[in-house]
C-alpha cells in the first residue's frame, strides 16, 4: 500500500518537473522541503511536515486529508500569512513575501465586513491591490462598480448588491466571497474550505459556479477541502495529505474533462477515484499516531 502511494506521488512530481523544465515561467508555486512549526521546543507543534510541491500555471489543485494535517497551512504559506520554519516557498518566481502575483483568497467563514454592502465588500480588493488601488477613487463609481456588478450577476447576486451581509443566506455569502476573491483578476486563487459550512445542495450548486468562474478566468487554484467529491469534481490534481505532521502522500491527476457536471460524479471512474482517495486517507487516519 505504502509503496504504491510513494511511486504514484513520485510519478506525478516527475511528470510535473519534466513539463516545467520545457517552459520555466509556467511554474507558479514551488515549495522546497518546506516545514512549519508553531511554538518552540517541546511545547511546539509541527503543523506541516517536510513538503515539496510544484504547481503549474492554470492548475486546480485540491488538498484533502484528515483534519489538522496542515492543509490550510499550505495556503497560508503561499499567501504569506505564515512563514516557513524550514525550506523555501517560491511564488511567481520570487520568494514569498514579495508580492510577485496577485492573490485572491477565500476562507470557510465568508468574513464579509458587516458595515459594507455586498457590492462594497466585493470591491474591497480593488481598494487594496495594485494596480487597481491607484484608480480606486476615480473608478469606484464607474468601471469598478460595473466590474463588481458583472461578477455578482455571474453568480446570481445581482439583486443583492446593495444589501448588507447579514441580510444574505450562507450560500449567498459564499458566492459573494468567491466574487471578492476573484474581482481583482488574481493569478492565484486560494480557497480554504469555502463551502465547508454549507448544506450539500448549496455546495453542489456552488461547485458549478466556481468551476464556471475558473474556466472563465483560468487562475491557478489551490483548494483545501475535506469533501472528496468536491476535490475530484473541481480539481485537475488531488493531493492527499497524511495526519499531523502533514505531508503530501499522494499526488494524482484527475482525468475527467472540464466542464464537469454532477453527472460526472456518478460515473464509475469518478466513484473509483473517490474510493481510492478515501482508502488513502482512512488508514492514515487510524494509524496517525504511530506515523
Amino acid at each position: 500500500m505504502d509503496q504504491s502511494v510513494q511511486s504514484e506521488s513520485k510519478f506525478a512530481v516527475e511528470a510535473g518537473r519534466s513539463a516545467t523544465s520545457a517552459e520555466q515561467p509556467s511554474k507558479v508555486i514551488e515549495l522546497e522541503a518546506v516545514s512549519v512549526r508553531f511554538g518552540q521546543g517541546r511545547s511546539g507543534t509541527t503543523a506541516l511536515g517536510e513538503t515539496t510541491l510544484d504547481v503549474r500555471k492554470g492548475e486546480f489543485i485540491s488538498f484533502v486529508g484528515p483534519s489538522g494535517c496542515g492543509k490550510s497551512t499550505i495556503l497560508r504559506l503561499v499567501s504569506g500569512l505564515v512563514r516557513p520554519t524550514n525550506g523555501v516557498v517560491v511564488v511567481g518566481g520570487r520568494e514569498v513575501g514579495v508580492k510577485a502575483l496577485r492573490i485572491g483568497m477565500a476562507f470557510q467563514n465568508a468574513s464579509m465586513m458587516p458595515w459594507l454592502t455586498v457590492e462594497r465588500n466585493v470591491m474591497l480588493p480593488l481598494k487594496i491591490v495594485p494596480p487597481f488601488r491607484a484608480d480606486y477613487r476615480r473608478k469606484r463609481k464607474g468601471e469598478f462598480r460595473d466590474r463588481v456588478r458583472a461578477l455578482l450577476a455571474q453568480v446570481g447576486l445581482s439583486d443583492f448588491a446593495d444589501h448588507f451581509p447579514w441580510q444574505l443566506s450562507g450560500g449567498m455569502l459564499q458566492r459573494a466571497n468567491l466574487c471578492r476573491a476573484l474581482v481583482h483578476d488574481p493569478q492565484l486563487l486560494l480557497l480554504d474550505e469555502p463551502f465547508g459550512a454549507l448544506d450539500q445542495f448549496t455546495r453542489e450548486e456552488l461547485w458549478g459556479t466556481l468551476q464556471a468562474l475558473w474556466l472563465d478566468k483560468r487562475p491557478t487554484v489551490l483548494l483545501v477541502t475535506h469533501d472528496l467529491r468536491e476535490a475530484a469534481y473541481l480539481g485537475s490534481r488531488i493531493c492527499v495529505m497524511s495526519a499531523r505532521p502533514g505531508r503530501i502522500i499522494s499526488d494524482t491527476p484527475v482525468p475527467f474533462a472540464y466542464p464537469r457536471t454532477l453527472e460526472t460524479t456518478y460515473e464509475p471512474e469518478f466513484i473509483a477515484l473517490g474510493k481510492r482517495m478515501r482508502e488513502l486517507i482512512v488508514p492514515v487516519q487510524t494509524s496517525g499516531g504511530s506515523a
Binding site: G104, F107, S111, L124, I128, V129, L190
Partner: peptide, 8 residues
C-alpha cells in the same frame, strides 16, 4: 486576514 492575504 482577508486584507492581509491581499498584501494590505
Amino acid at each position: 486576514d482577508v486584507l492581509r492575504a491581499l498584501g494590505a
